[in-house]
Structure formats: C-alpha cells, structure tokens
C-alpha cells in the first residue's frame, strides 16, 4: 500500500536509501570501534603514541611546517604549467606523422621512455647534484632551480603519455569530420582533437599532479628547506617523529580538497555536455 502522494517507486527508493544509510553507519562504527579498541592493546602502542602522536610537539612545530610548506606549493605552482606545456609538446610531437618531423617523434619517444623509466628521486639527485657541478654561479646553481627542472623532466614524460593516450582515444571519425570541412591537420589537432583529448584525461592528469604535489618533497634531498626537510630538522630537535605526522596532515589538507574539486568539475562538465544520465 503506497502512501498518499508517493509513487511505488519513490516509496521503494526511500526504503532502500534508509536501509543503506543504516548499514553504512553500522559497519563504519564497528570498524572504527575495533581499530580504536584493538590498536592500543598492542605492546608497542604507548611508545608509538609518544614518538608519533605527541600533541605538544605537534603544536610547537606545526606553524613552522606550514610556512615551509609554502615552499612546496611554490615549487609545485611553477613546475605544473611547465609540465603541462612540455608534456603536451611531447605528446603532439609523438602524434605527428609528417616524415620531415620524424626526428621529433623519435626524440619524444626516447625522452618519455628514459624519464618514465628512471625513479623520480634519481632524476632529482642526478640533475640536482650533476648540473651545479658544472661550476655554474649563483643563481644558476640553485637547488630550487635544478630540483624543479628534474621534476619537470620526470613528470612531463608521464603527462606526455597521458596526453598521447587522450589524443589517440579520440575517434578517427572526428578527424574525418574536421578534415572534410577543409581544416588542416594542425587545425584539426588544435580545435577538435586536443580539446576532446584534454577533457578525457583530466582525471588521470589530476592523479599525476597530486603525485607531483607529494614528490616536491623529494627535492629536500638536494638541499632546499621545504616541509619534509623542516620536519626532519624538527624531528632531530625534539627527538620525536610527530613532525612527520604533522607534515602528512598538511599534505592531506591540500591534496584531498584538490581531488574532490576536480571530481566536482568533471561531473559538472559531463552534465553540461551530455544528455540524460543512465541510473
């Protein structure tokens, strides 16, 4: 028997929703309860608690960590556009079929193979210690500069592959549609293929940029005092690991909203350009 003003389907969906909320809530409470109850039972818990979750150390060091994190954000902000531009350039080079530009294709292919195959940390160490070893003078021996260059080298190879996959995923019929109108192959790439490719690869691209945000911390190995380095200094000062936890929290404060924001953008874009959604 349905309630007045409510269709059978609506009544069913309400019951379903109530049920799933209840199940989700109960299982969450049980899992969290178990963790909270069991972890402190472990023999080493009091030591871990003291050296990783010391509230006093956290409040002493947090502000300094936060201001060191500004450095990470700066490095990220100047690396990201360079990576996008250089990555797209490489991807376009690899998609070009003109024989005259074959050397470019070869270069782009070799480049992506090499930098995708080297751990980021090695690229940073090699570039960060190697290039200033050429005897360059200030400001050209700055670890910020060469650390950033290393990040751009490494990440542009990942991003190039993402872009290339996007370019190749655009169906051939789009190219036919554009070329049949008299657009040149360059115009087709620019106005038809790349805009669609970029839209499609935004989620994987964001993954790469969240990784980049984290890998900026690797630059600390060649000198700059950014958040990881600062946390290391504080760790030694207080003989306590809590600053690392503080640094982790700061990273999360940035990366979680970042990913949620992009999800939101993607959903909005899909709703804007497509017809009705399938349930």
């Amino acid at each position: 028997m349905s309630q007045p003003g409510v269709t059978r389907r609506q009544a069913f969906e309400r019951r379903q929703k109530r049920r799933s909320v209840l199940i989700a809530f109960t299982s969450t409470v049980i899992v969290i309860g178990l963790v909270v109850a069991l972890v402190p039972q472990t023999p080493g818990w009091y030591k871990v608690k003291r050296s990783f979750f010391d509230g006093a150390v956290l409040s002493d060091t947090f502000a300094k960590l936060l201001s060191a994190f500004v450095k990470d954000i700066q490095i990220f902000l100047w690396c990201a556009p360079c990576i996008l531009i250089w990555g797209m350039t490489l991807a376009v080079c690899r998609s070009v079929r003109t024989p005259a530009l074959f050397p470019l294709r070869l270069f782009a292919a070799a480049y992506t193979d090499i930098f995708r195959g080297i751990p980021v940390i090695l690229t940073i160490l090699l570039v960060g210690f190697g290039v200033p070893g050429l005897g360059l003078h200030r400001p050209w021996n700055s670890p910020y500069l060469w650390g950033s260059v290393a990040l751009v080298l490494a990440y542009s190879s990942y991003v190039a592959e993402v872009f290339r996959a996007g370019i190749e995923s655009v169906h051939e019929s789009q190219r036919a549609g554009a070329r049949s109108l008299g657009l040149s192959s360059g115009q087709t790439l620019r106005y038809v293929i790349i805009p669609q490719a970029v839209r499609r690869v935004i989620p994987p691209l964001m993954n790469d940029f969240v990784s980049l945000q984290k890998d900026v911390a690797l630059i600390s190995l060649i000198g700059p005092i950014e958040i990881l380095r600062q946390a290391g200094i504080d760790k030694s000062k207080y003989a306590n690991f809590t600053p690392y936890v503080g640094a982790a929290i700061i990273f999360l404060l940035l990366t979680i909203p970042e990913t949620r924001f992009v999800d939101h953008l993607m959903t909005r874009e899909r709703r804007r350009t497509s017809g009705t959604a399938v349930r």
Binding site: G177, S180, S184, P195
Partner: peptide, 21 residues
C-alpha cells in the same frame, strides 16, 4: 594539398561526426 578542394566539397557522414565539445 587536399584542403583547398575539401573546402569546396562538403561531406555528411552516417554517424554525424559532430564535435561533442
């Protein structure tokens, strides 16, 4: 170069090939 001629010859496809973006 096919472009100047394609300009003068329009083509419509079975699956429309519109630009979705």
């Amino acid at each position: 170069n096919p472009d100047p001629f394609r300009r003068r010859i329009g083509m419509v496809f079975q699956n429309f090939n519109l630009f979705p973006h």
